Structures are given as C-alpha cells and as structure tokens.
Amino acid sequence: MIIKINGKYYKIKKIEKNPNGKYTITTENGKKYEFKNVKIFSEEELK
C-alpha cells in the first residue's frame, strides 16, 4: 500500500488506529506519521 504525504509517495509498513480516532502510519523507512483522514493508494492505482 502507498500513502501520499506532502506530495511524496511512501510505502506503508503498518497502520494503527488510535483511540483518539487518528491513524498512525509507519512507512517502510521507519518514520511515523499521525493523521485524522487518510487516503491509501494501491500500487495499481498509481500506474
């Protein structure tokens, strides 16, 4: 799965839903981001 952050695309390693309704997304390079609204892309959609 792929996520778009600030115009760049990252591969997703893990998605966790937090009790506060936000999502914590861990990218393949180990960085964590927290979002309220998340749009996930499949690799097929990006081709």
Score class of each variant (00 low, 15 high):
Met1Lys: 08
Ile2Thr: 08
Ile2His: 12
Ile2Lys: 06
Ile2Arg: 08
Ile2Val: 13
Ile3Asn: 00
Ile3Cys: 08
Ile3Val: 11
Lys4Tyr: 14
Lys4Gly: 06
Ile5Thr: 01
Ile5Trp: 06
Asn6Thr: 03
Gly7Thr: 03
Gly7Pro: 00
Gly7Leu: 02
Gly7Tyr: 02
Lys8Leu: 09
Lys8Asn: 07
Lys8Trp: 06
Lys8Ile: 14
Lys8Pro: 01
Tyr9Gln: 04
Tyr9Glu: 05
Tyr9Asp: 03
Tyr10Gln: 09
Tyr10Trp: 07
Tyr10Pro: 00
Tyr10Arg: 04
Tyr10Lys: 03
Tyr10Thr: 07
Lys11Gln: 07
Lys11Cys: 08
Ile12Phe: 02
Lys13Ser: 12
Lys13Asn: 07
Lys13Glu: 09
Lys14Tyr: 10
Lys14Cys: 11
Ile15Glu: 00
Ile15Val: 10
Ile15Trp: 05
Glu16Ala: 05
Glu16Lys: 05
Glu16Phe: 07
Glu16His: 04
Lys17Tyr: 10
Asn18Pro: 02
Asn18Phe: 07
Asn18Glu: 09
Pro19Val: 11
Pro19Ser: 12
Pro19Trp: 07
Pro19Arg: 10
Asn20Arg: 06
Asn20Gln: 05
Gly21Glu: 02
Gly21His: 02
Gly21Val: 00
Gly21Lys: 02
Gly21Trp: 01
Gly21Arg: 02
Lys22Tyr: 15
Lys22Asp: 11
Tyr23His: 03
Tyr23Val: 11
Tyr23Lys: 01
Tyr23Asn: 01
Tyr23Gln: 02
Tyr23Glu: 00
Thr24Ala: 06
Ile25Pro: 00
Ile25Arg: 00
Ile25Asn: 00
Thr26Tyr: 13
Thr26Cys: 02
Thr26Arg: 00
Thr27His: 02
Thr27Ala: 08
Thr27Trp: 04
Thr27Glu: 01
Thr27Gln: 01
Glu28Gln: 12
Glu28Cys: 15
Glu28Tyr: 11
Asn29Gln: 08
Asn29Ile: 03
Asn29Leu: 06
Gly30His: 02
Gly30Asp: 07
Gly30Ala: 01
Lys31Asp: 14
Lys31Phe: 10
Lys31Pro: 03
Lys31Gly: 10
Lys31Leu: 12
Lys32Ser: 09
Lys32His: 07
Lys32Leu: 07
Lys32Arg: 11
Lys32Met: 11
Tyr33Glu: 01
Tyr33Cys: 09
Tyr33Asp: 00
Tyr33Ser: 01
Glu34Asp: 05
Glu34Val: 12
Glu34Cys: 11
Phe35Tyr: 07
Phe35Ser: 06
Phe35Ile: 15
Phe35Ala: 10
Lys36Asp: 15
Lys36Met: 13
Lys36His: 11
Asn37Gly: 07
Asn37His: 14
Val38Gln: 05
Val38Ile: 13
Val38Tyr: 04
Lys39Met: 14
Lys39His: 12
Lys39Pro: 12
Lys39Phe: 14
Lys39Tyr: 10
Ile40Val: 09
Ile40Trp: 15
Phe41Arg: 06
Ser42Leu: 14
Ser42Met: 13
Glu43Arg: 01
Glu43Gln: 04
Glu44Arg: 04
Glu44Ser: 09
Glu44Cys: 12
Glu45Trp: 04
Glu45Asn: 09
Leu46Phe: 08
Leu46Met: 12
Leu46Pro: 10
Leu46His: 09
Lys47Val: 13
Lys47Phe: 03
Lys47Glu: 13
Lys47Leu: 09
Lys47Trp: 02
Lys47Gly: 13
